[in-house]
Design a protein around this nucleic acid. Structure first.
Lengths: 205, 205, 205, 205
DNA sequence: CATGAATGAGCTTTCATTCAT
DNA sequence: AATGAATGAAAGCTCATTCAT
């Protein structure tokens, strides 16, 4: 990562396939065991390649996670940058929140591992801060108009984003699709009501 | 007898003091390095005892964390069970949220380590689920009256609790006390507005 | 996958050579120090490999011993299953006993370690019982014809086998080959005489 | 043992009782776990005394075993020195062998531990050789008259003693008393027959 | 005498990483 | 590119032994 020059980028299609197999395997192993407990051996076993091959493509365990985080972070930023369209506030929020919830559920394994690695690795901590900050700033831009002085839009946005991320990562939404839709609707109502309140009242109370 | 574990509960005041020193040291080391990177040697160094002494009181690294989690979990449940008093909804919420935020900030190191350990250790994952569930249930009991059919009070409570926990654990609140107060006020407004909205509208709309 | 043990069977000729070197080294170290006092480090030092390599092929100290016991047990059963040929009883017994004595002397190191390990490890105790039982049963089959009612052939066989095993493992036979031959002749006479006596007299007398 | 001056001999009746409790506990723990796996902690737990108390009476684990071996060795030598009385050879042998078998069964735990410790501790190996040698010499003295040139009485005695010791320590005799008596009778017949044979025929064959 | 806390040497085991094939 | 054997640093943990109370 900061100083990792050894692993060569795959030059052939076969090489790219192997690298992808390793990423997929890592995603699965991290989901099952977490980052700390996962061993390179577990990853290569699932990927069906030999031990040495791993190091042809990735410097170390952190490097695969970093590659997975690349994908997840890009997807998060993409969703964050999509426009908020629609007349009805609640409907708009439902759409936006739905996108985030879907993405978070899809990337749950990577996100959980990312959070775990952040606990001891400054590199992942920094990336997390960066992405969370960008998402919050984007959201803050959308809600700024409705927020009066006294309530920092970044704080409001941070709190609302934390609500969605927190709820989605708790593992309570895995089951039926109806549950997901109902929860998203509830989250949208909470956002809408909360936003209206901070718009109506200033910070002075 | 055949497989009696080495670790025993301290039988004298001196022993209890040593165990407490180890817990304090662990709290600090976990905060600095995270659970995965922390070594037992780091803990005993900070505690100023020998390597073997650690194992007199704790089976392993996870056992000290478990002891710390005992304290934090008890504190969280205690706060969750305090009554919600006061006429004004927002003022009440501010008090309640303030208590949680204070506690979470005070126990930030343990909570962060607990979350990290949950990624690979089912024991900590279970404890986390249990405590979060109990807190959400308590909150759900308080807000049920204002929640109409169509919005599961547990979902609403879970989301609001996630917001507070998420916001407080992001490390954005460490600085000035004024920041903290303002953030708590904002969170209270978001709760109040959100709660009112889910009370006014059913789940169908 | 979650709990795949480190030790694997060697997949190449080079690996098999290394595993064999480790077995040879263990045999020697066990002979010199006994099982309890032998350290894995002693074994790898003699084998001329690194510490980690040991664990590539054997889970632990007991696993190498088990591999050595595999060989010794097979050799014992092979000898036990050889036919008893010859007209003259004493000559036949001398041949058979000679085979056992030779084998026991050759495998003395492994047998002594096996006995030692049996004192605390049920696995080795079970294997010992199994092999001793099989040998005794084979011998019992050969002597049954000369054994009258009242003397259980298994008891007679067990006692005679114990005599040979006991005598050979006492470390009194290492010196000259003439000593060995004389001792074997004495043992054969004792068997022959004992067998004739239990054949002539019933159990009641 | 060779150089162990620290542990003081108990001076009071209470002290002697504690020392005896420790010996009894050690006997039991050694029987259950073997010498290598037994820990001082296991012994003190069974004895119901504290960890430190152990070292008031015994230098270390080997010292308690040595104390137990003192008792067992004395009992063995005492039996070995008893006169062989009786007209009938087989009846005499039955009496003598019965005494040994009884003693060995009674002291089985100590003997097994003694054998185990002999594998790596020269002190116990020497004591074992000494006692076995004395017993064999005593037996050899009794059987010398019936043994012709060509069969060393010490070899004959060693083999016969090995038969009894081996049979009695295999754990096949624990059950009914009738079994024991039958086995002793069989062993006596085997001795008698073997002895007669080596008396009738010289070493030359 | 008895207690049990404290010590620390020493062994086991793991696993990321390198390297010869 | 791929393989898997070999390495060795780093922890983990145990337990005999000492010592303050």
């Amino acid at each position: 990562m900061p100083d990792a020059p050894a692993a060569t980028a795959p030059r052939t299609a076969r090489g790219e396939r192997t690298a992808a197999r390793l990423r997929d395997a890592a995603r699965q192993v991290f989901a099952d065991l977490g980052f700390a407990a996962a061993r390179v051996e577990d990853v290569v076993e699932v990927a069906g390649v030999s031990h040495g091959t791993f190091y042809t493509y990735y410097e170390n365990k952190a490097a695969v996670l970093d590659a997975l985080v690349d994908e997840t972070a890009a997807a998060l930023l993409e969703v964050a940058e999509e426009p908020w369209e629609g007349e009805d506030v609640e409907a708009t929020l439902e759409t936006v929140i739905g996108r985030f919830v879907d993405l978070i559920l899809r990337e749950a394994a990577v996100i959980a591992t990312w959070l775990e690695a952040s606990a001891h690795d400054p590199h992942f901590r920094d990336r997390l801060r960066l992405v969370r900050g960008r998402v919050a700033t984007q959201v803050a831009g959308h809600i700024a108009p409705v927020s009066r002085a006294g309530h920092d839009p970044e704080v409001v946005a941070g709190a609302l984003v934390a609500m969605v991320e927190g709820y989605a990562t708790r593992g309570l939404l895995t089951a039926a699709d109806a549950d997901r839709a109902a929860a998203v609707r509830t989250l949208a109502r909470l956002w809408a009501g909360g936003l209206q309140r901070v718009a109506d009242s200033g910070g002075a109370g």
